[in-house]
């Protein structure tokens, strides 16, 4: 017996079209990945190899020399990674706490002007970042936070996007009765947040942590505005300072870039699905 579906033939044209489309998708994927590939390849080659024609397409054996050169040029390279990571960690921790707290209030508590205040928070998302660049420099100069990590951590400790995300998540998963039950159980308002709400929003906290951490770790412009001394440079600034410096080889630059990219690359390999879903959830609903 032949089912009618099996015997129905596809037009040959559709098949070739499909093949071409697959080809384009994979070619695109290659374009997306090639820079990363060459970053790692160059990190293992001496300058002479990289500058030869054609350039190297496969890994070499110059990795350690490149690393040594990088360390010689920028002795504070490792420190700047630690610096970047700790600034990102602090920003993330603060954001998780403050955004969850505010998101919880907007999702679960009744108060006057709730919608207005929430609207204001969303409206700040529309402010283009460049209008605050000059004012931020001025403010940080006035209060003496130039060259201080505070200037990077504190202003971004409670992001509008994070509040939005937390509100969406909390209002979709937490029943209001739960909060009321806790109130009946003599739980204070802050205790409710700490003991009942926080333990139940783990997934959203995880996604927000990813997003904030990545944003903070990659933050170049903010650091450029307020960090002036090499001593306190974060990773992007250190890398940027290597650019055009006499005697820096492409190999050393590449290994620096590779090391800078690796932590997030690792994070992304594990959590890409979650990160992508988290970032788009707000866009689809909002």
């Amino acid at each position: 017996m032949y089912s009618s579906r099996k015997t129905k033939r596809r037009p040959a044209g559709a098949f070739t079209l499909k093949l071409i489309a697959y080809g384009i998708v994979f070619a695109g994927a290659v374009v997306m990945l090639l820079p990363f590939y060459f970053m790692f390849v160059f990190a293992t080659h001496a300058n002479a190899d990289i500058l030869s024609v054609p350039p190297p397409y496969w890994f070499g054996d110059h990795l350690l020399e490149n690393l040594k050169q990088l360390m010689a040029m920028r002795p504070n390279f490792w420190k700047s990674i630690g610096w970047s990571l700790s600034i990102a960690a602090a920003t993330t921790a603060l954001n998780l706490f403050f955004c969850a707290l505010a998101g919880y209030a907007f999702a679960m508590l009744d108060f006057r002007y709730r919608e207005t205040l929430f609207g204001l928070i969303l409206a700040t998302l529309l402010l283009p970042s460049f209008v605050s660049m000059i004012p931020t420099i001025l403010l940080m100069q006035q209060i003496g936070w130039i060259n201080s990590s505070k200037a990077l951590i504190i202003p971004g400790a409670c992001g509008a996007l994070g509040i939005f995300m937390m509100r969406q998540y909390i209002s979709s998963v937490l029943p209001r009765d739960l909060v009321d039950a806790a109130r009946m159980d003599a739980c204070g308002e802050f205790d409710i947040f700490l003991r009942v709400v926080l333990p139940l929003i783990g997934p959203a906290l995880g996604t927000l942590a990813l997003i904030t951490f990545i944003g903070s770790y990659n933050n170049f412009v903010g650091a450029l505005l307020v960090l002036r001394d090499q001593e306190v440079y974060t990773l992007p600034l250190v890398l940027r300072s290597l650019q055009g410096t006499n005697g820096v080889t492409w190999g050393a630059l590449s290994i620096g870039a590779a090391i800078a990219v690796l932590p997030l690359l690792a994070l992304f390999v594990v959590y890409s699905r979650r990160l992508i879903d988290g970032l788009t959830a707000g866009a689809v609903k909002g």
């Binding site: 997306m32 990945l33 820079p35 060459f38 940027r240 590449s254 800078a260 992304f268 992508i276």
Partner: peptide, 23 residues
């Protein structure tokens, strides 16, 4: 596939731009 296309979005600009300069 999606992750591959998305990767550039979460990559540190400075680092990857330096690579592009070489490329």
């Amino acid at each position: 596939i999606l992750a591959i296309y998305f990767l550039p979005f979460i990559t540190q600009t400075v680092a990857i731009v330096l690579v592009f300069q070489a490329l």
